[in-house]
């Protein structure tokens, strides 16, 4: 019951999805399974949500390090959820105002912060210690220069850096990405088979 039923669910659902792909008349099964899946995934999110609440409430109760920051976290979390669920999430709602003025700028700034960290990472990665590192350095430099207006200004315009950058992105970059994609795809297929056949059971947790 504790072990076999989950494995049986995995086997039946996994095999059904594979079989239906080769039987177009059974595509309604995938449609229904996918709708169910979306609902189950929301419960997985709810598990994370409740876990976040539990962790932060425990932190406040125990006066752990940085417990004070858990208060704005919980206030923001419940405010956003209650307003969104209760009053809607469309244009012109308070939820949308909070989204536009808090979440969007914070999200964009968090990502833009990475611009500074990739610069320091670049310093370490771009030291041409060997041929491979030199190739990485040259490709990255050309792509970066080719994407800014300076590449078509003055003597740099004769180097046609934008055209070379486009060529690198279209051919050598595609080659590398494609090799990785094919290799990763074969890995995903093998892992999926292992999961469906019950060989890979890490998702079952400890027992």
């Amino acid at each position: 019951m504790k072990q076999r039923l989950p494995l049986l669910i995995t086997l039946i659902v996994g095999l059904t999805l594979i079989v239906q792909f080769f039987s177009p008349g059974l595509s309604f099964i995938q449609e229904r399974f996918t709708n169910w899946f979306l609902v189950v995934i929301v419960f997985a999110f709810l598990l994370g949500f409740l876990s976040l609440v539990k962790v932060n409430i425990t932190k406040i109760k125990r006066r752990s390090e940085d417990w004070g920051y858990s208060i704005p976290l919980l206030i923001a979390l419940f405010t956003m959820a209650i307003i969104g669920i209760g009053w809607g999430i469309g244009e012109g709602t308070i939820f949308n105002w909070l989204f536009m003025n808090l979440m969007v700028p914070m999200s964009a700034t968090m990502f833009s912060l990475l611009a500074f960290f990739v610069a320091s990472a670049a310093y370490r990665a771009f030291r041409a210690r060997n041929l491979e590192a030199a190739m990485l350095l040259i490709a990255a430099t050309i792509v970066m220069l080719g994407r800014v207006p300076i590449s078509s200004a003055g003597f740099l315009s004769y180097l046609k850096l934008d055209a070379i950058a486009n060529w690198i992105m279209t051919y050598p970059n595609t080659v590398g990405q494609r090799a990785i994609m094919i290799g990763a795809a074969l890995g995903v297929v093998a892992t999926s088979l292992r999961i469906i056949l019950g060989i890979e059971r890490a998702y079952m947790g400890e027992e």
Binding site: I9, L17, I18, F37, V40, S192, M204
Partner: peptide, 13 residues
């Protein structure tokens, strides 16, 4: 495990 088994099977399939 039941819920996770279904999610994992969907992902794998």
């Amino acid at each position: 495990r039941y819920g996770f088994a279904y999610s994992v099977a969907m992902g794998a399939g």
